[in-house]
Each structure stands twice: as structure tokens, then as C-alpha cells.
Design a binder for these strands. Structure first.
Length: 215
DNA sequence: ATGTTGATCTTCT
DNA sequence: GAAGATCAACATC
């Protein structure tokens, strides 16, 4: 078994740190976007009250039950998409939600998709729905698989490479948006790279005054 | 800088 | 009928 398969086969809490720093790509509408993942959350399937799979398999979450390397993309709040990488053993419904990243290739495309021509670069993909929108991910690609290497185009629209052999230095903490459910708040299922400005909860130690525009 | 709220739709109770 | 793995605009300090 190759290293990629081994990492993808890990349990979600083991897999999530390996996804930090990995490159995820999409090739949609003849446009290539490559990003580097900086923040993720682990979801542990049927045993996890915070997981969409907690109450069993439904039409919506079916992709979660697919083989490792499957994309689980869901639509929520009537307007947003969020994207996961399915990991673990086939049928366990475990996955890692990609919560933030930084653009490596295709910044112009990301800005156009997000209708944010001016927003600071580090905020472009800061948040799961922003990340999914920047990559152009919709339900059309739910259930597709992340190919090894870079996305190629129709039939191979998604790519996942550079999974960390040894996880990069990172921090952990409680997941966002699922607090209060069965005490899952106590579990550090959220992982982020240290010192990355694109990580949503990261705040600069010394905020600048409004008028003091530097650089 | 922080708090509140509208937008908008699928799934499950 | 309500809540949801959210975001951005707006209000207020």
C-alpha cells in the first residue's frame, strides 16, 4: 500500500493533521485553482454527534460512506457549500472538513468566483464556504474523488497532493459551529497551522489603529 | 472592533 | 416547523 493510501486510510483525528499543508486543486470550466490547506476539522461518523453521519446514511450524506479520497460536498444555510475529504475505512463515514486555505495558483479566478476583487488575500479562502466557493465546488462534484496530483479537467476535476508524511507544526481546539452537542466541545477536533493568517480564529497580536495605515 | 441580522433551502422532527 | 459543519452587511461603541 502506498503512502497516500495509508494516510487516507487513517481515522479522521489522525488524518486531519496530515491534510494541513496539503495542496487541493480543482479544474473547472477550464480554470485551474490550487490551494494550500491551513485549517481543518475532523468528523468521526456514526459515533460523533457533530457529524452529518450521526443519524445514519441519507441521500445527502451518502458520499461520506464512500471510499477514502472521496469528496463529500454539502449545501447548507440555503446558499453555501462546504467540502470534505473522506478518510478512514470504506463505509465508516469519517472525514475532514476543509475550513481554510491560501491560494497558490488562480487568485484571479478565486476573486472572480467570490466576487471579492479587493478583499485581502489571506481572507479569500478563510472559512469553509469561502474555500468551497473559491475552488468552484458545488453538489455537482459531491461524491467525486480527489485524484493523485493536480486536477486535470472533466472526470478529474479534483486533485489532492502533498499530504504531509509527518504533520506540520499545528495547534488544536474545539470545532466551530457544533458547540453544545453532546459535549463534543471538549474534543480538540479542529486543527490549524501555526501562524497562518488565513486561519479564521487567528488574530494579530497587535491590532492596528484605524487611521494608522502602514505599508 | 464587536455584536446582530438577513439571506435562502435541504433534511429531519 | 426548526435548525443547520455560514457569510457579509450593517449597526453601534
Amino acid at each position: 500500500m502506498g503512502e497516500r493510501e495509508e494516510i487516507l486510510g487513517l481515522s479522521p483525528t489522525e488524518f486531519a493533521p496530515h491534510l494541513l499543508g496539503a495542496h487541493v486543486s480543482s479544474y473547472i470550466d477550464e480554470q485551474l485553482v490550487v490551494i494550500r490547506i491551513t485549517e481543518v476539522e475532523a468528523y468521526a461518523g456514526a459515533q460523533d454527534p457533530g457529524s452529518h453521519a450521526y443519524r445514519g446514511k441519507t441521500k445527502r450524506n451518502a458520499a461520506l460512506f464512500g471510499p477514502p479520497g472521496t469528496a463529500y460536498i454539502y449545501f447548507t444555510y440555503g446558499m453555501h457549500h462546504c467540502a470534505n475529504v473522506v478518510c478512514g475505512h470504506n463505509g465508516i463515514a469519517s472525514a475532514a472538513l476543509m475550513r481554510a486555505g491560501e491560494v497558490i495558483i488562480g487568485e484571479e479566478i478565486v476573486r472572480a468566483r467570490r466576487s471579492q476583487p479587493l478583499t485581502p488575500k489571506h481572507l479569500l479562502l478563510s472559512g469553509p464556504a469561502r474555500l468551497a466557493q473559491g475552488l468552484g465546488l458545488t453538489l455537482e462534484l459531491n461524491g467525486a474523488s480527489y485524484r493523485k496530483g493536480v486536477a486535470q479537467g472533466p472526470g478529474d476535476s479534483l486533485g489532492l497532493e502533498h499530504l504531509a508524511t509527518t504533520p506540520l507544526p499545528h495547534s488544536t481546539g474545539p470545532r466551530t459551529g457544533v458547540a453544545g452537542i453532546g459535549g463534543t466541545e471538549a474534543y480538540p477536533y479542529r486543527y490549524w497551522l501555526v501562524g497562518e493568517p488565513s486561519v479564521s480564529k487567528y488574530r494579530r497580536a497587535a491590532p492596528r489603529k484605524p487611521r494608522a495605515e502602514r505599508d
